[in-house]
């Protein structure tokens, strides 16, 4: 066990580096994002699905939408209250949520996710880059 001190020193260094992000950010937790709705979105009261569902599952829903539109040629979405929507990220979602920077990006940035939806789907024209 002559290597004992090397092993322990190595372990300490490893743990220090490994946990670096945690203690570096200690006490600096940023507050949750403050999301702004557009007037149009406010007026609509509810999105295509209940707000709770949208908050947690919008990506899952978008996935269902794209599968339906691209692969099954279904273009219309009917929610529980029987309301119909055209399934389109650019033309339906972003029509109401025309403030991508204030709405989508804020949360995505906070959660550090980088969906590549907008590599192809054009964010709302009204918003300035």
């Amino acid at each position: 066990m002559n290597d004992r001190k090397y092993i322990i020193a190595g372990l300490v260094i490893f743990i220090a580096i490994f946990t670096f992000p945690f203690w570096y950010n200690l006490g600096k937790a940023s507050p949750g994002p403050d999301i702004k709705l557009t007037e149009k979105a406010k007026a609509a009261k509810q999105c295509v699905m209940p707000t709770e569902y949208m908050r947690a599952e919008h990506m899952h829903l978008l996935d269902i939408w794209r599968h339906a539109v691209v692969r099954n040629s279904d273009r219309t979405f009917v929610n529980a209250s029987g309301k119909e929507f055209t399934m389109s990220l650019s033309n339906t979602c972003l029509d109401c949520h025309s403030n991508k920077a204030e709405f989508c990006d804020k949360c995505h940035d906070y959660a550090s996710v980088r969906p590549y939806c907008f590599d192809c789907h054009i964010d709302n024209p009204k918003e300035k880059k």
């Binding site: 699905m49 209940p50 569902y53 269902i64 339906a68 099954n72 040629s73 279904d74 273009r75 219309t76 979405f77 009917v78 929610n79 529980a80 399934m87």
Partner: peptide, 8 residues
């Protein structure tokens, strides 16, 4: 409330 339907 989470029910939905997809159609052409």
């Amino acid at each position: 409330v989470d029910a939905f339907k997809l159609k052409p």
